Simulated assay, not measured.
Amino acid sequence: MNCKSEDLRLYAITDRHWLNGETLYQQVEKALKGGVTFLQLREKNLDEEDFMKEARKIKALCKKYKVPLIINDNVEIAREIDADGVHVGQSDMEAGDVRDRLGPDKIIGVSARTVEQALLAQAHGADYLGVGAVFSTSTKSDAKNVSHETLKEICKAVRIPVVAIGGITRDNVKELTGCGADGIAVISAVFAQQDIESAARELKKCSEEMVKG
């Protein structure tokens, strides 16, 4: 399954930090209704069994909205539930190893912060890149910033789609115009908002404007 650039317009990454009495399923459905085009299920604290249960439910929901579901880091769970793919960081398995485990028809995303990392990920079979943090972010304390110039260089250097990630909000997304990214990846800009559906709708519009330049 190749990853199309329009699939990455609004890439949402889950976080149960802001559930406030709701279930993750309910919040993800609101985000999908608002226009999220790609979903990454990110679970740092669930045990394997609960992660699997949650992943199966979210997969069915994404299927209903015809949105690809990617599992963060966990290749085994991605394979077990037959998710659309997996996203791995630089310190995780190489894209080529992941491809061997998941097969040729799955989407593989890789995090990159430099042109060298981006080109290597592409050479190893990555379908798209997540590049950042493009702004300071509170959701990933170890994330180092990537300049907009570097984002631009990465987008020019690779043939695969690139999604910008890290501290993106509706107020700063315009600053990424002209960098060449195919979309934006967000966590709190959707899931920490009181009205998740309208936040997603507005961000998707902002992302489309950024891409058009």
Rank of each mutant, 00 (worst) to 15 (best):
Q40E: 15
D105V: 03
D100K: 15
A60W: 02
E149N: 01
I77C: 14
G103P: 07
L39A: 04
E209H: 00
I70M: 09
G167R: 11
L69N: 08
V158W: 04
N20D: 14
F191R: 08
N74M: 02
F191D: 13
E29T: 09
Q193H: 09
P68H: 05
A133E: 00
L129K: 10
T114R: 03
A200D: 03
A118W: 06
E48M: 09
Q193P: 07
K106Q: 01
Y11C: 00
V163H: 05
L8K: 09
I58Y: 11
E197T: 08
K152H: 13
A123V: 01
A199L: 03
A185N: 08
I13N: 08
L32K: 05
D105W: 11
R101D: 01
S188F: 07
D127C: 00
E48W: 10
L61I: 08
V98A: 03
T169Q: 07
T137K: 11
D182F: 01
A112Y: 07
A121S: 13
D100V: 02
N45D: 15
F135K: 04
G109C: 09
T177F: 00
N72F: 05
K204W: 04
H124R: 13
P161Q: 14
V158A: 02
A181T: 15
P104N: 10
I58G: 05
A95V: 02
L119G: 03
L32C: 06
N172G: 10
I77T: 15
S147M: 13
V186D: 07
R113G: 15
A143M: 12
R159H: 13
E22L: 12
R159C: 01
A164L: 10
E209I: 14
I184E: 00
